[in-house]
Write a protein that binds this DNA or RNA. Sequence first.
DNA 1: ATGTCGTGCAAAGCACGA
Length: 270
Amino acid sequence: MRIATWNVNSVKARLPRLRSWLAEREPDVLLVQETKATDESWPATELAELGYESVHHGTGRWNGVAILSRVGLADVTRGLTAEPGFGGSTEARAIGATCAGVRLWSIYVPNGRTVGSDHFGYKLSFLRALREQCAAERAELGLAAPYGLLGDFNVAPTDADVWDITAFDGFTHVTPEERSAVVEIQRAAGADEALIDLMPRASADPRDERRPYTFWEMRMLGFQKGRGMRIDLALVSKSLADRTQAVWVDRDARKGEGPSDHAPLVLDLD
DNA sequence: ATGTCGTGCAAAGCACGA
């Protein structure tokens, strides 16, 4: 089974590339972020023609998350129980479903903008709500149940996860507060059964030994200059990690005409 | 290099978010 996560930065703008990517890589489950779609404009019919049932949670223009599956899609949950809002309303940043017996979430953590801003506080609140959701669900499902939080976390877990840590001094995505909030999510059900941050290789090539990034800024030719970040994560239970044979970034999806600024993160399971 | 994208509004340019 193949599970992938991809911030597509508008499903409308990316539909041609999404279609060809699905045909090429044939994931069984794809967790999507930043669809920028409404539930009405979500291309469910086109995706169904490609063999995927899908669920979408979005209000248009910004945010929006979805799950595509060709191995079943059950127990759909839109949003987090304790999800905070921003500017007076809740956004569409989390959707969960059970696919082929695996409980999965498609997560789009707020960017945070600048350290100490209202949006930064919102980001930390969102991460706390995700920890609560994870703790409650894992307790309910049992710690042995295969479980995964995948998506765009907008946090680089370590200094090695950005192209040059000195370039990030004073910026979001690398602060101790954000990093410890992610660790707290991993430990939501206790340190013994912590979710594992699956480390991908940098591309589809098994011999690729470059540092693995999942995001490169559109501005300033970030991809062309190798200025990447590993901010799309797969945090999975031991039961799911044990089934994982390969984890890789589909770096090729960042190339060519009209890419997203993120590349898909792919898990190949036993 | 505040250098690229995508969206929506109201318009063929701008504001906003990333």
